[in-house]
């Protein structure tokens, strides 16, 4: 029961500052709340943001005709991703939504990997202990926020490309289909958020559990899972941005 209790306690949010709940509700197993406060993953979020902005600025600052070093890497990253998404959703949509998808991919990838950095200092009964950071993408609120962005972008793209004809899609073959298409529209971003959250949170939970087991030499068993986690982090980042691209292009090409 000890391990189970550990998982349960990791569900609770530890606030670095603030933390007073303004509103709270509960439905279907979901606990909705509105809490003003600074958590550890917010710091990680800002850290990833800062890293991306600094790295990107350094990569784009030097405008050498023959790229080398960091500039070459940033151009390879940006050019490759932007081409990949443009090919997927077409050059016209790619111009509008390319930056969004590329940022999604890079940010989610770096967030997933940030969960592997053992930089989480905590004072436990007078002893300093190190553990892995909590990745921002392993928080359902964050992935739900990302999915919400995708949701709005999808319908914005659909409305922008098809104008009012876009709403005909919801009753497309017959009006009878309306409930199903609405379920579809809601389910898409929901699964998008759940998939990312479940994968990253699950992987982090597994690593945490293995850390607790004293059967293995401490640190080795989680390392094996973290190698797999590297692969999963990449695949989840790719799948999130890929599915976002597919939803956007689907909405834009109805008629």
């Amino acid at each position: 029961m000890d391990a189970v209790m550990q998982v349960a306690s990791s569900e609770g949010v530890h606030y670095l500052a603030g933390g007073h709940t303004l509103w709270e509700a509960s439905a279907y197993g979901f606990n909705f709340s509105f809490t003003m406060g600074l958590t550890k993953w917010m710091v990680v979020f800002w850290g990833v943001m800062l890293f991306m902005i600094i790295a990107g600025t350094i990569g784009a600052r030097k405008k050498a005709l023959v790229p080398s070093g960091w500039q070459n890497f940033s151009e390879w990253t940006y050019g490759g991703l932007s081409n990949f998404f443009s090919k997927m959703i077409g050059p016209h949509l790619g111009k509008t939504f390319g930056p969004l998808l590329v940022t999604f991919f890079i940010f989610i990838l770096l967030s997933n990997y940030s969960g592997m950095l053992p930089l989480n200092f905590s004072m436990d009964e007078g002893t300093l202990s190190l553990s892995n950071l909590q990745a921002p993408t392993s928080v359902f609120s964050v992935t739900a926020g990302f999915a919400l962005i995708v949701f709005f972008c999808t319908h914005f793209a659909g409305f922008k490309e098809n104008k009012l004809r876009y709403f005909k899609f919801f009753v497309s073959p017959i009006a009878f289909m309306l409930p199903f298409t609405i379920i579809d529209v809601v389910i898409h971003p929901f699964t998008l958020a759940l998939r990312l959250f479940g994968n990253i949170h699950g992987e982090e939970t597994v690593v945490e559990q293995l850390m607790q087991l004293s059967v293995f030499v401490n640190g080795w068993a989680p390392a094996i899972i973290e190698v797999l986690g590297m692969l999963f982090g990449l695949i989840q980042a790719l799948i999130f941005s890929l599915l976002a691209a597919i939803y956007i292009s689907e909405a834009a090409e109805h008629f």
Binding site: T191, R195, N199, I235, L238, L242, L243
Partner: peptide, 10 residues
């Protein structure tokens, strides 16, 4: 294949 696997993984 990745897209299909993602749908199943959901």
């Amino acid at each position: 294949m990745l897209i299909c696997l993602a749908f199943m993984e959901a």
